[in-house]
Simulated scan of single mutants.
Amino acid sequence: MTYWVSTLLTLLAIYAGISIALYYLQDYMLFKPEKLSKDFQFNYENQTYEEHNLETRDGATINGIRFFPKGKSKGVVLYLKGNSKSIKGWGKFAVDFTRLGYNVIMVDYRGFGKSTGRRSQKAIKRDLQLVYNKIKEVTSEDRIVLYGRSLGSGFAAKLASINNPRMLILDAPYYSLTKVTSRYMPFMPLSLLIKYPLPTYKWLKYVRCPIHIIHGTQDKLIPFKSSVKLSQVNPKLTKLHSVIGGGHKNLNNFEAYHQMLDEIINSKPKEIDLKSTSINVIHSSKNAKKQN
C-alpha cells in the first residue's frame, strides 16, 4: 500500500512540475522572435516603404513598416504575421498586396524586431487596436482589410469583432490556440495553464464584415479541419478557400493562393436572387413524393 501511495505522490509531483514549467515557459515555446537593433535598416528590393514607431500607454514601442503600391491606393491591408522572426523577413510578402493596389501595414509584436514591452495577450490586442486607430486617422474603415496569418489570425479576428473593416482574411487559422496545443499535450489542463488561449471561434461570432478563410489541405501544424469548423461559426458571412496540397508555410508558392487573393480583394459581393435558383429543389425523388 505504501509503495502505491509513494508512486502516486511521485507521479502527481511530476505532473505538477510539468504544469508549472509549462505555465512559465510557454512564451518561449510559443513565440520565436527575431530581435533587431534600433539602428537596423530595412531593405526591400522593388518596394517603396517607410518605417514607423508607435508609443503605447505603458511605454512600449511598436515598430512597423508601411508599404506603398505603385499606383493609386485602393485601401490598406493590416497584415498580422505569424509567431516567428520579425517583419524583416515577413515584409517580403507585402508585394502580394501592393501589386493589387493596396498599402500594407506590418508590425512586430512586443519582443519581436524593434518592438519593445512586456508581452501578453491583452497587451498585444491593445497594441493592435492602437495601430488600427492610427490607420483610421488616414482612411475610412471601408477601405481597411484585416489579414491574419497563423498566430495573427486570432488577433485579426478579435480586431474585426470590435471594429468595422471592409473584410477579414484568415490564412491558416486555428479554432483556438488551446485546441492547437492540446494536440501535443492532451493530458495537460491547458484551459487553466495557457496564457494565450486566443479563441478565434468566439470572436468570429461577432464579426459583421465578409470573412474569407484560406487554408492548405496538407497543413500538418494546424489541420484544414480547423478552418472547416471556423467556417461554420459565422456561415452567412464566411467563405472557405482551400489550397489543394498546400502546407502551413508554403501557400505563397501556389499559384492558386495568389489567384484567391486577387479574387477576394478585388471582387465585389453580388446579391443573388435566390428565387431564381434551385435552392428549394429537393434532390431525392422519395422526399419529393412526400411533399407532393
Results as ranks from 00 to 15, higher is better:
Val243Lys: 06
Thr139Asp: 05
Leu22His: 04
Ser19Trp: 04
Ala256Gly: 12
Glu51Trp: 02
Thr56Arg: 11
Tyr206His: 15
Pro173Tyr: 15
Lys158Gly: 00
Ala123Asp: 13
Pro269Asp: 13
Asp127Phe: 03
Lys70Gly: 00
Leu25Asn: 06
Val228Thr: 15
Lys85Gly: 08
Leu9Pro: 03
Leu146Asp: 09
Ala16Val: 06
Tyr132Met: 10
Leu177Arg: 11
Gln291Ser: 11
Ala160Cys: 05
Pro189Trp: 13
Asn287Ser: 03
Asn266Arg: 10
Ser176Lys: 02
Ser6Val: 08
Ala21Pro: 02
Leu177Thr: 00
Lys74Trp: 00
Arg126Val: 04
Thr48Asn: 07
Ile265Ala: 03
Phe254Glu: 09
Phe254Trp: 08
Gln218Lys: 07
Met188Glu: 10
Glu141Ile: 00
Met167Asn: 03
Pro210Asn: 03
Lys286His: 11
Ala156Gln: 01
Gln218Val: 00
Lys38Ala: 14
Gly64Asp: 11
Phe93Glu: 13
Lys268Val: 07
Lys289Val: 08
Asp171Met: 03
Pro235Arg: 11
Gly17Glu: 02
Ser176Gln: 09
Gln259Tyr: 01
Gln218Gly: 02
Asp39Trp: 05
Glu34Pro: 00
Thr116His: 12
Leu274Val: 12
Gly245Val: 06
Ile169Trp: 00
Leu80Cys: 14
Phe254Ile: 12
Lys32Asp: 05
Ser19Asp: 08
Thr48Ala: 15
Lys179Gly: 11
Ser161Ile: 02
Val145Ala: 09
Pro69Glu: 04
Ser278Val: 03
Ile222Asp: 05
Ile62Leu: 10
Gly91Thr: 06
Tyr24Met: 15
Lys38Glu: 15
Lys270Glu: 15
Ala13Ile: 07
Asn292Trp: 05
His212Thr: 00
Ala288Pro: 00
Lys88Cys: 07
Ser150Pro: 14
Leu168Cys: 15
Gln129Leu: 12
Ser153Arg: 01
Thr61Phe: 10
Ile211Thr: 00
Phe42Gly: 12
Thr139Gly: 07
Arg110Asn: 13
Lys74Met: 02
His248Leu: 03
Leu8Ala: 10
Arg143Cys: 04
Asn133Val: 04
Trp90Ser: 12
Thr56Trp: 05
Leu9Ala: 09
Leu221Phe: 10
Gln47Ala: 12
Asp58Met: 06
Gly101Ser: 08
Arg166Lys: 14
Asn252Arg: 15
Asn103Lys: 12
Asn83Cys: 01
Val145Gly: 07
Ser267Cys: 05
Phe224Val: 13
Lys268Gly: 12
Val77Met: 07
Lys88Gly: 00
Leu80His: 08
Asp219Gln: 03
